[in-house]
């Protein structure tokens, strides 16, 4: 059996659900699960996000079949943070291609659920680590190309080609202050205005990665 998290599930005909899962070693998969309310079958209540499951599945192609599901751990995500948890899941759904082994994403998501359930105060750091696992790694003490130390007084920009480099007023990258970048690198708490600046940076970055396709959970995670 393999460890997995449910990122999304929706009813599929009467007795089944269509489930998007993040597995520890096999990446992101989509499965159909026949569920029931009786013991012995896959219990409907088990197919919920925020639980670490051990699963067995079979089949080939786009949609496979869940054979067995056991619950290993239930993360008690506070009700007020459910939307944020779904948002983290959607980041994985949108940024991680299917069936690409990504144990680092699994670990980062596991940490994210732990942070959510332990009322971690700096969820922007959690999000930073999750994005890094998904290939959006911009936290660095030096510029990516020239390896020049980040200066707190300067502004930097991020592009997926070059990474972090000194910002110029002609280029179109997403800007970030040197101070903010250094604080992120040292995992220091950000003050309110830095948090706001960072949120804008993240939204812009994710939006660019998704080619403008909106994240459906974003509004719930940050505006309510």
């Amino acid at each position: 059996m393999e460890s997995a998290f449910i990122l999304h599930r929706r009813p599929y005909h009467e007795h089944s659900v269509l489930v998007d899962l993040l597995t520890e070693h096999s990446g992101r998969i989509t499965c159909i699960a026949r569920v029931a309310k009786r013991k012995g079958k896959i219990m409907r209540g088990t197919i919920e996000p925020f639980r670490q499951l051990a699963i067995e599945w079979f089949g080939r192609g786009e949609v496979q079949t869940l054979r067995q599901v056991e619950e290993r751990r239930h993360y008690a995500v506070p009700i007020s943070q459910i939307a944020r948890g779904l948002y983290f899941g959607e980041l994985i759904l949108k940024l991680l291609p299917k069936e690409l082994a990504a144990p680092e994403v699994f670990t980062a998501y596991q940490q994210a659920l732990f942070d959510l359930s332990s009322n971690h105060q700096a969820l922007y750091l959690t999000e930073t680590d999750l994005l890094a696992s998904l290939g959006l790694d911009f936290v660095t003490p030096v510029t990516h190309k020239e390896s020049v130390p980040i200066n707190a007084q300067y502004h930097y920009q991020y592009t997926s080609d070059v990474g972090i480099e000194l910002a110029t007023h002609t280029t179109q990258g997403i800007r970030l202050s040197g101070q903010l970048l250094l604080n992120l690198y040292q995992k220091l708490l950000l003050d309110e205005s830095q948090q706001k600046q960072y949120r804008q940076f993240l939204d812009h970055l994710i939006n660019q990665q998704l080619g403008g396709r909106p994240l459906k959970t974003r509004k719930f995670a940050f505006e309510h």
Binding site: E48, P49, F50, I79, S80, I82, L86, F220
Partner: peptide, 14 residues
């Protein structure tokens, strides 16, 4: 008491 049911309850309580 599903994830969505709880989220809905929270939203409405606000």
């Amino acid at each position: 008491p599903s994830i969505e049911g709880e989220m809905t309850a929270h939203y409405i309580s606000q």
